[in-house]
Amino acid sequence: MFEFRGSPVSVRPDLRFAYTSLWGHFSRPGPTLDGQQRVALLTSVRDRAAEETARTVGIEHPLGLLADTLYHDPTTVDGDLVRSAADASGDPATVEVAALVSMLSSVDGTHRALGADLEPLPETSAGNPTGEIAEGLKRRRTHLPVPPGPIPVMFDLLPYEGAVYQGLFGPQYMTGWEMALDTFRRSPGLDRAQMELVSSRTSIHNECFY
């Protein structure tokens, strides 16, 4: 698993471990979807077919459309698209799908940048959705109910999904502590300024102001 076939370089172990763990997370029941639904959704999303197969996955078409759009055309995601999905499928399912698709995008993005074949999605694990949903969160001029705070807490309506998402930062970019250091560098590897060039250019292409 995570051999990065086609990459001209070997990938460091912490990144491979993070992705292997994430694949296990995808395969297991989430707050509103079971493992089979989660993997079926992500499989469809890669083929831009989540809207078409939404009902077979167990979600409504607007949420499938959001999933496809978020993965393939993120610059066109807007409040109307997100709210349509949430109105049809509920906030928790919408947040779960948004988290899954966003995290898949990071793994697939890393593979594409290395010229590696995409990793096949995992076999699924049995079990019912967990129902682990935080209470009391509201839309704060946002499209979805979120706590006050920055981008890393945007999925905290679903605490476990939020924790998994935050766990990807360190291996892919920097931990929270490391982000406080303007002089952070991986050795061997990139320094902070070089990393921020990559992040900035990516964000410009994705039309993300942050």
Binding site: P8, V9, S10, V11, R12, L15, L66, L70, Y71, P74, T75, V77, G79, V82, A98, V101, S102, M103, S105, S106, V107, D108, G109, T110, H111, A113, L114, R140, R141, T142, H143, L144, V146, P150, I151, M154, F155, Y165, L168, F169, P171, Q172, Y173, R186, P188, G189, L190, Q194, M195, V198, S199, T202, S203, N206, C208, F209, Y210
Partner: peptide
């Protein structure tokens, strides 16, 4: 820059593919 730098660049790219989408879908105000 070395082979490790390519891995770092790819993973930072992947991370921001994720972060950009999170910003878009959550609608976090600026």
């Amino acid at each position: 820059l070395g082979p490790e730098a390519l891995v770092d660049a790819a993973s930072v790219f992947g991370n921001f593919e994720m972060m950009n989408r999170v910003a878009e879908v959550s609608g976090i105000p600026i």
